[in-house]
Design a binder for these strands. Structure first.
Lengths: 196, 196
DNA sequence: CATAAATCACACCGGAAAGTATGATCTTCT
DNA sequence: AGAAGATCATACTTTCCGGTGTGATTTATG
């Protein structure tokens, strides 16, 4: 059955998982402690033994989500052909950012950042962002860009062109649109760099 | 003092304005009907005489916000010099989208689109978007782009590069960053068009 | 087995806020 | 002036939900 400490940790994780589910789908206000309890197969009492208040649970959950939400499309950059590497990264990046999980996280952060700005920093402090470092390295070493941060920023912005539409439920791009966007955005950035 | 119909309309507007204030700053869930009533100098009873429920009031308010939220930086496109026209439009566009009002509207729409997707369409149905038409015209007539929608999409995406940071409270760009962004984004799009 | 801690099941408290009821007061139209 | 309707002031009802209390039951450990 496992030792006591293991069981306690498992219960803690169960609660955090249920809370993640609830908070992501309902937002902080509308999230329901009774539902979180029943989702995690635990009594409300027990929830409150682990987390003293809804706010505390929320804060811990955001940190938890931050730790879980790793995605590495960085591996695509290992491709020997530079252009192909960028293209594959671009497509992976676009697709991942249009999935439900990251969209719901963004929705939650946007909704709550107004009243409690610190949760955003809480989240990003827990979320390991090596993507930026990898990108910077690629742009400066394999492309020879001196100050790559601007190019990267513009590129990334273009790659997220469809995200707001999806976030607002106005429609999803299909595979062709995604591929096309990856190509166009990458072309613009590369052309700009090779210009002078 | 005005006729009856005028007074009723004025009261309706007062309520909608108060509701706009409240919903934009608190979100739907946390918005308080008593506060809306007192903000509009009207009794809760009267609020309910005009709008049968909180949900109804919310829906009407979103439509109302949609009608009010016009911004025309399109005039910048009248400048005789093509490049200058694009640059001025770009800066105006960036600045406007970083103001509180549009950011709060976006926050509200993002937060509620999850549970009630129809409010997004409600909003955009009421919001007159001539900007896109003007841009399309400019890109095809003065720049000679055949299928301008893709160029426009990429350009706009780049111009909104800082918006998410501001929306999440992670920091605002200063004047130099904004000017720089306008220049870079415009340069990339123009270069891509003149390429072939 | 015995003890102590954790958990359960379930009822309960208190506050906040949506929505309603009532009777008084004001405004408009005839 | 007087009737009709709108608005006010205020109190009330109801429901939901965060958080707590109690006593029974399980589980780890000496």
């Amino acid at each position: 059955m496992g030792t006591m400490e293991e069981r306690k940790e498992a219960k803690r994780v169960a609660i955090l998982d249920a809370a993640r589910e609830e908070f992501l789908s309902a937002g902080f206000e509308a999230a329901n402690m009774d539902r979180i309890a029943s989702l995690s197969n635990v009594t409300k009492q027990t929830v409150y033994r682990y987390f003293p208040s809804k706010t505390d649970l929320f804060e811990a959950t955001v940190r938890w989500i931050g730790q879980m939400s790793g995605a590495d499309f960085s591996r695509h950059l290992d491709h020997p052909d530079t252009n192909e590497a960028l293209l594959r990264f671009a497509e992976g990046f676009i697709r991942w950012h249009l999935e439900d999980e990251p969209l719901n996280i963004l929705r939650l952060l946007v909704a709550e950042s107004g009243k409690s700005p610190e949760i955003v920093t809480t989240f990003f402090a827990a979320a390991p962002d090596e993507t930026n470092a990898v990108l910077t390295k690629f742009f400066s070493e394999r492309l020879g860009v001196e100050h790559p941060s601007e190019s990267i920023r513009l590129w990334i912005s273009m790659l997220l062109a469809y995200r707001e539409d999806v976030l607002l439920g106005l429609g999803r791009p299909g595979d062709p649109e995604i591929a096309q966007l990856a190509v166009s955005a990458t072309r613009l950035v590369l052309a700009d760099h090779q210009r002078e």
